[in-house]
Nucleic acid binder design. Structure first.
Lengths: 228, 228
DNA sequence: ACCTGAACACCGTTCAAGT
DNA sequence: ACCTGAACACCGTTCAAGT
C-alpha cells in the first residue's frame, strides 16, 4: 500500500502543458515563467523539471497542443474544401493562442500533432488534388506563408483598426506637422477605413481564396492531371 | 571653448541604434541586452537611458532602420515591377536582420521610414495600379502577409533543408518505429527533396508571382479600370 | 544639472542538501 | 532514490548618491 498522494493533484507532463497553455492564453506569453507556472499548479518551480527538460521543451509541448486543435477533414474529399477548412481552422486556432504565432514551424522536435498536420496536408495535395511533388511543395509553402503571415499582422494590429488608424495618424501629425503632405495616403487610410466600416477579420478569406483560386488554375495547367 | 570629449565616441541615439542592430545581427536578438549593448559601446548601461526611453523604444528605432533599408522604386512606373522589387527587397532585408521578423508591423510608434514604406505602397497601388481603395487594402494585406509569413518560415527552417528533412525524419522514426507507416508523406518529403535538390530561396518568388498574377487579374476585372 | 553605481525585483537553471 | 530550497548568473529599470 502506497502512501496517499496530495488529493487530485498528481503532477504530469500533460497537466503541466495544459496549465502552461492556459497561463499563456490568459496573461500573454511573457507572463509564463517556470515560477508563475509552478505557483499556478501549486508546486515548487523545480518540481516541473521532473516532467519537462527545460522551458524550451515545455514550449515544444505547448505548440503541439496548438497543432492538435486544428481541424482537418479526412482524406478523399474535395481538395479545395479541405485546404480551405484547414486554413480557416488554423487561423481561428492562432487567434485563440496568439503566443504561438511565429513559432509553429520553428520547433526542432515536432510532436505527433505537428507531424500529422504536415503529413495530412501533403496527402491532400498529392492525392486529393493530384499535384506533382514539386507543385505540392509550392502550394504548401504559399498557403502556410500566407496563413502565418496574416495571423502575425492581425495580431500586431489593434482590434478597432479604423479608430486606431485615426489615433495613430493624429499622433504622427502632432509629432510632424508636415506629415499630412508627406504621407497623403496614410491620411487617406485613416479617413477611408472609417467610411467603409473596415473589419480585418474578413480580409483573411479574401487572400486565402485569391491564393486557392490561383493554385486551382495552376493545377489545371499541370501536364499530368491525374495522380503521380 | 568646450571641454574636449572622449575622442570619437560621443554617444547619440543614432549610434546606439546602429550598434544595437549590429549586435542583434551578429549574436541574435537574445544576445542584445542593455548591458551587452553598453559594453559594446564602452559605456555604462544606465548611460543609454539618456538617449532611449527603454528597451522597447530602442527596438522601435531598430525596426525603423530595417524599414529604411527596403528599396522602393519611385512612383509612376509599372505597378507590378514596383511591388515585385519592393517584396524582393523586403525579403532580402529580413534575411539580413532575422531578429526583425514578426515585429515589422507590431510597433506602436512607427518611425519615418515605416510611414514612408506604407505610404508609398498605398500610392503605388492606388495611382500606378489604379486599384480602388478597398482593392488596394486587399492587395496590400495579401502581399505583406505572404512576405512576412514566408520570411518567418524560411527563418525557422534549417539552411540545408533536404539534409535536415532526412535527419528529422530519422529522429522521428527512431522515436516511433511506426512513424513510416503513420506519416508516409513526411517520409516522401525526406526522400524527394534530395532528389530535386531543393532550394527554399527560389520558393519565395514562386508564391510572390502567383499572388501578383492573381492581383493583376483582379485589377482587370475591376469596374473602373482607370483611377479613383 | 547631469550622469551613473548600487540596488530591486525578476528570470531559467544548477547544484547540493535534504528526505 | 527522488525531490526541492538555496544559490548563481543573468535580466530591465528605479533610485539615490555622486559630480
Amino acid at each position: 500500500m502506497v502512501r496517499a498522494r496530495k488529493a487530485a493533484a498528481p503532477l504530469s507532463r500533460d497537466r503541466i502543458l495544459r496549465a502552461a497553455v492556459a497561463v499563456a492564453d490568459s496573461g500573454g506569453f511573457d507572463s509564463l515563467s517556470m515560477r508563475s507556472l509552478a505557483s499556478e499548479l501549486g508546486t515548487a518551480p523545480m518540481s516541473l523539471y521532473r516532467h519537462v527538460a527545460n522551458k524550451d521543451d515545455l514550449f515544444d509541448g505547448m505548440i503541439d497542443i496548438v497543432f492538435s486543435e486544428v481541424e482537418f477533414p479526412s482524406q478523399g474529399g474535395n481538395w479545395l474544401a479541405t485546404m480551405r477548412l484547414r486554413a480557416i481552422s488554423m487561423h481561428e486556432t492562432l487567434q485563440r493562442h496568439p503566443w504561438a504565432i511565429g513559432h509553429m514551424e520553428s520547433r526542432r522536435r515536432a510532436g505527433p500533432a505537428n507531424l500529422r498536420y504536415h503529413n495530412d496536408t501533403m496527402a491532400c495535395l498529392r492525392e486529393d488534388a493530384g499535384f506533382s511533388f514539386p507543385a505540392a511543395v509550392h502550394a504548401f509553402s504559399v498557403m502556410d506563408s500566407y496563413i502565418y503571415g496574416f495571423a502575425q499582422q492581425e495580431n500586431a494590429l489593434p482590434s478597432d483598426i479604423p479608430a486606431e488608424a485615426e489615433v495613430r495618424h493624429d499622433a504622427v501629425v502632432e509629432a510632424d506637422p508636415d506629415a499630412a503632405e508627406r504621407y497623403p495616403y496614410l491620411a487617406q487610410i485613416a479617413v477611408e477605413l472609417r467610411k467603409i466600416d473596415y473589419d480585418f477579420s474578413q480580409e483573411f478569406e479574401f487572400g486565402l481564396d485569391l491564393i486557392l483560386d490561383a493554385l486551382e488554375r495552376m493545377r489545371d495547367r499541370e501536364p499530368a492531371s491525374g495522380k503521380k
